[in-house]
Design a protein around this nucleic acid. Structure first.
Length: 513
RNA sequence: CGGGGAGUGGCGCAGCCUGGUAGCGCAUCUGUUUUGGGAACAGAGGGUCGCAGGUUCGAAUCCUGUCUCCCCGACCA
């Protein structure tokens, strides 16, 4: 085992943060941009995002939503309307104040004082207010409800501390916004979209998550309820991977979203919003990455199978390429995970072995190398990225016949998808602790498990207001947060770990990103 | 935004203390020999040392400012 020469220089167990960064650069996913907190997403990283987008968009459409697009600039007065919302976002806004530059006389440019905007525009950190404005125009009667919309967009939040994919100043996401007749409909929809997120995370990203309600102190600014899906990363920390909010009538009142009900009365709509972002890619890295780079689940892999001909700059190359092209055509005519299989025949010059390690680091699910001898024997050399190493410390090549390899691909890709999920789910389950019942035990647990502490499920009395603040403070001392109140958990049967009162439900407590 | 660390060819680094106009490894290009597994040898190209000022005959090196990145914290849908 120790003689394995891994494709990365940093191991997860040695320095998880450094490993995370190395995966991003070694897999050629993204790079720094020179602008604080903003990144360039490179083809392999963006290709993964496009896959996530495609699959998520299908799910959003399948639940009755239509896409639209709203402006990136929001008039300040529009943004000001909802008080809690303003309080939540005001300190991290980008603001546009001028519309022209002039020479400063020293060879540079400055905003033209003559071109100051009458009203500043804020760069959207989220679009509740401006979409609320539109909803107020679009909705007249109960017949217009529910109004189900979604947009794919970039947003900007001036973050103090940024990390690639996990928290960037500008990021890409989808934000769904819906309006309903009453609370029950809106709440039901909030949970329906949470379930869509759970399904996408688990079935498409192979990333197991726990869906549940956020505690009061973690609510979206302006929300009545906030729900999340939480995933466990390989260092035991939690990642909030998606959120769904029931907004009550807060934004409806702020934007005047009203409808005439069946009795002719004016009512405020109940609205929801929900989003997932490029942060999911960070989750995929920290869920599936290993000491050789990324492992991309087949459902979201831009190329699911990469064929590497062992070209030697010889006349035989033509025949080898022909042999590989037939394999490519044969695989790409088949379906896996409900879609045409995506195969790349990598014709770029260069040694196959070198290119192999590039694709290992990128995490292509299946790598097939084909040399002259393979061709003579009508076989190929096949490597599964999820099971890279053999017992002897060398890459674990299988050598099926070319026809067998092609025929096996639909099942193999499905199997890789499933095995990545199983591996992550087992790791998560093994790292959830349920027998901690006192604050002392909680403190001891996290003191003893510096590196991979995982999550702890505890029971609590669901304190609110000042009592909750006190709990949050206690947890903060241990660098812990309440992740969520999981759906479908066992009922409480003990005492609240924080207050000693009878518990009403179970919650997850963890360190988090 | 506070504390710490760092920015030198594509990547990773040395040089900086004790100023004298840049070096190593990998990668790249060319050639030769190889070739079923992350090749060897030889040669070559590529950097105004993050940026802007200052000190100096002379600055990667000293001083000031600034930008960006990383770690810890505060903050965070």
């Amino acid at each position: 085992m120790s003689n394995i020469r891994h494709a990365l220089s940093v191991k997860r167990a040695d320095d998880f943060a450094a490993w995370y960064q190395e995966v991003i650069s070694a897999a050629d996913m993204a790079e720094e941009s020179g602008v604080r907190g903003c990144m360039v997403i490179k083809p392999w990283g963006y290709g993964i995002w496009e896959r996530i987008q495609r699959l998520m968009d299908d799910r959003i459409k399948a639940t009755g939503h239509d896409n639209c697009y709203f402006p990136i600039f929001i008039p300040l007065s529009n943004f000001e309307r909802e008080a809690a919302h303003v309080e939540g976002f005001a300190k991290e806004m980008a603001v546009v104040t001028h519309h022209r530059l002039i020479a400063d006389g020293k060879g540079g440019l400055i905003p033209d004082p003559e071109a100051k905007l009458e009203e500043p525009l804020v760069v959207r950190p989220t679009s509740e207010t401006i979409i609320g404005d539109a909803m107020a125009r679009w909705i007249q009667s109960w017949r217009d409800l529910p109004l189900l919309t979604n947009q794919w967009a970039n947003v900007v939040r001036w973050e103090m501390r940024t990390r690639m994919f996990l928290r960037t100043s500008e990021f890409l996401w989808q934000e769904g916004h819906t309006a309903h007749e009453n609370a029950a409909d809106a709440q039901e929809h909030t949970l329906r979209m949470l379930e869509v997120y759970r399904a996408c995370a688990e079935d498409d990203l192979a990333m197991p998550v726990i869906a549940g309600e956020k505690p009061e102190n973690e609510r979206f600014p302006g929300a009545v309820e906030t729900w999340s899906i939480e995933a466990m990363m390989q260092d035991g920390k939690a990642l909030q991977a998606g959120t769904s909010h029931y907004l009550g009538t807060n934004f409806a009142k702020a934007s005047g979203i009203q409808y005439q009900d069946r009795e002719g009365g004016q009512q405020y709509c109940h609205t929801t919003s929900w989003g997932v972002s490029t942060r999911l890619i960070g989750g995929v890295i920290m869920t599936h990455g290993d000491d050789d780079g990324l492992r991309v689940p087949p459902a979201i892999a831009p190329h699911q199978v990469v064929i590497l001909p062992m070209l030697r700059d010889q006349p035989e190359d033509a025949a080898l390429l022909e042999y590989c092209e037939a394999l490519r055509a044969s695989i790409s005519s088949q379906f896996a995970l409900g879609e045409k299989i995506r195969v790349l025949l990598d014709r770029k010059p260069g040694k196959a072995a070198t290119k192999r390690w590039d694709w290992v680091r990128k995490g292509a699910p299946v790598i097939i190398e084909v040399g002259g001898r393979d061709m003579e024997s009508k076989v190929v050399s096949l490597l599964r990225r999820d099971r890279l190493w053999a017992e002897n410390g060398k890459p674990d090549f299988a050598t099926p016949s070319r026809d067998e390899a092609a025929a096996a691909m639909p099942a193999m890709l499905g199997d890789i998808q499933q095995s990545l999920f199983n591996e992550a789910a087992q790791r998560r389950d093994a790292n959830i602790t349920r027998d901690v019942t006192t604050m002392d035990a909680l403190a001891a647990f996290y003191a003893d498990n510096q590196r991979y502490p995982g999550w702890v499920e505890v029971q609590w009395s669901r304190p609110t207001g000042a009592a909750l603040d006190a709990v949050v403070e206690k947890l903060k001392a241990l660098k812990l947060t309440v992740r969520n109140v999981p759906l479908g958990a066992m009922p409480a049967d003990g005492a609240c770990i924080f207050t000693g009162e009878p518990a009403v439900e179970r919650i997850y407590v963890a360190r988090s990103y």
